[in-house]
Each structure stands twice: as C-alpha cells, then as structure tokens.
C-alpha cells in the first residue's frame, strides 16, 4: 500500500515536470516535435496495466448504423524496441463473440500478433502487415489503434494556435508526424495537442497521395489515479467516403494486477 503511494507521488512529479518543461522546448522544430511527443508519452509512464470496455458505432454515408463491443486489456512495456502489449476480446456482434486479438507491439519492426478463433478453438499467428486495413470494418485502421509510441514517427513542430473547436480558448501545439514503420497507410498525420495537459485533441490523417483522408476528434478526457489521461470519446470522420466511427470507452481501470502471463499466447484460449 505504502509503495503504491510512493509510486503515485513520483508519477505526479513526472507529470509536473513535463508541464514545467512546456516553457522550455528545444528551438529546432524536429526536436521540439519529438520532445512534445515524448512528454505526452512520459505522462503515461507507470500506468502498469489498464482494462476498459469499448462500444463502437459505425455510420455509413446513408446513415445506417452498426455496433461493435469489445474489452481491451493493456500491459505497459518499458523496453527500448517494444510498445505496449494488448489483448482485445470481442463481445459483439455475436457471430464473432469470443474472438480475441493479442498484440505484442514493436516500435519499428512488425508487431507480433495472434488471433483466437473460438469456433475452432484455434490460436493463429497472423500477419501484422495489415496496418492500414480497417479495424472491424470501421474507419479506424489497425495502426490508429496500436500504441502511439513516439519512436514510430519522425516529428516536426509546426506552430502553436488555438485548439480546434470547441476548445478555441486553449492553446494547442500543432505537430506533424511521419510514420517510420513500414506499410503505413499515411504519408503524415497532423496532431493538435493541448499545451497544458499535452493530450491530443485532434488528428488529421493524410493518405499515401498526401490528401486529407480522415479527422479524429478526441474528447471527454478523464484523468485516472490523478495522472493518466484517457479520452473516452473518439470520433473519426472519413472525408472521402463520408463514413464515421464513434468509439466510446467505458469502465477504465488501472493497475489491476495484470502480468505478462495474461498476455501470453497460451492465455488467448481462455480469454473469453
């Protein structure tokens, strides 16, 4: 119990230091962009693990809706070349209920990914090359989901300006990031992050021809354990197709005691 308090205290100091750093960014736009991304990442250090449920609503151009529900568990990884591990279990629609996806993310190399197919009782190692493919038929690509590690991108700070509506009174850092990993569907992304809490408020995605493809709005931020920010509402609009996807995160819990064994290939068979 006491050690928990100490960790929380340290984490709070971390958060404070990154806010103090805000006045103190490097001059060079590339260094500044990278420093902002790293500061955002640092605010998340020490979350250990988290669990949450997600409700997804897909809307096509005609306005027809379909829904998805899933549970996601995340394990923080601190290794140099690795990103966080995640386990996603699908609850809805019913024809894929119990299907699970385990991802051991890497920074620049291909992620390790396994899928569990409950009808066959089969665990299958799958190719993670499909980064640009749609996640569950939604407007989110797999790469929009996997860890947003700073090391996956080359960053450039562009400017500071008022945040996108409805947060015009707040200042945002506008940073461009270009994917360094292979097979991305994007040439670049432009990120508006709040200059105070350093959390992203909007991301514009540019396709391989550098045309604006999608815009993601992140709202309903909640702070957990007095430190870790999570946007509970993510709204993606595809400007080309007119399709939209809304993700609503619920029941976030942190430091729930998950360990590596809960993210092992053999744990997939009973994830349900």
């Amino acid at each position: 119990m006491r050690s928990g308090v100490v960790i929380c205290g340290l984490a709070a100091k971390f958060a404070l230091s990154s806010v103090v750093m805000a006045n103190d960014w490097p001059e060079d736009p590339a260094e500044k962009g990278a420093a902002i991304a790293q500061a955002t990442k640092n605010m998340d250090l020490g979350f250990q693990d988290s669990q949450a449920t997600m409700h997804m609503v897909l809307t096509n151009a005609r306005g027809d809706e379909s829904t998805r529900e899933l549970r996601m568990m995340t394990l923080e990884r601190r290794g140099e070349d690795e990103g966080n591990w995640s386990l996603i279990v699908f609850d809805h629609p019913r024809d894929i209920e119990g299907t699970a996806l385990l991802t051991h993310a890497r920074i620049l190399e291909a992620d390790d990914q396994w899928m569990y197919l409950p009808k066959l009782g089969r665990v299958k190692r799958i190719s993670s090359a499909n980064k640009a493919g749609p996640f569950m038929g939604s407007e989110f690509a797999f790469e929009d989901f996997t860890a947003q590690e700073p090391g996956k991108f080359a960053h450039t700070w562009l400017r500071d300006e008022p945040c996108p509506a409805p947060l015009e009174t707040v200042t945002c850092h506008v940073t461009e990031r270009r994917p360094l990993y292979e097979r991305s569907g994007y040439t670049r992304q432009v990120v508006w992050s709040d200059a105070v809490d350093l959390q992203p408020r909007q991301i514009d995605y540019y396709d391989r021809k550098d045309a604006l493809l999608k815009t993601l709005s992140l709202t309903a931020y909640t702070q957990y354990l007095d430190q870790y920010w999570r946007a509970k509402d993510l709204f993606m609009v595809n400007h080309v197709t007119g399709k939209k996807t809304r993700l609503a995160w619920e029941d976030y819990t942190f430091q729930t005691g998950l360990g590596e064994k809960d993210f092992d290939k053999s744990s997939l068979e009973h994830a349900r």
Partner: peptide, 9 residues
C-alpha cells in the same frame, strides 16, 4: 511450425 515474415506465412 510457422514463420511469419510480413505478408508471408
């Protein structure tokens, strides 16, 4: 045995 290299299995 399975080897997974990019889009190749």
């Amino acid at each position: 045995l399975q080897a997974t290299f990019g889009s190749w299995l």
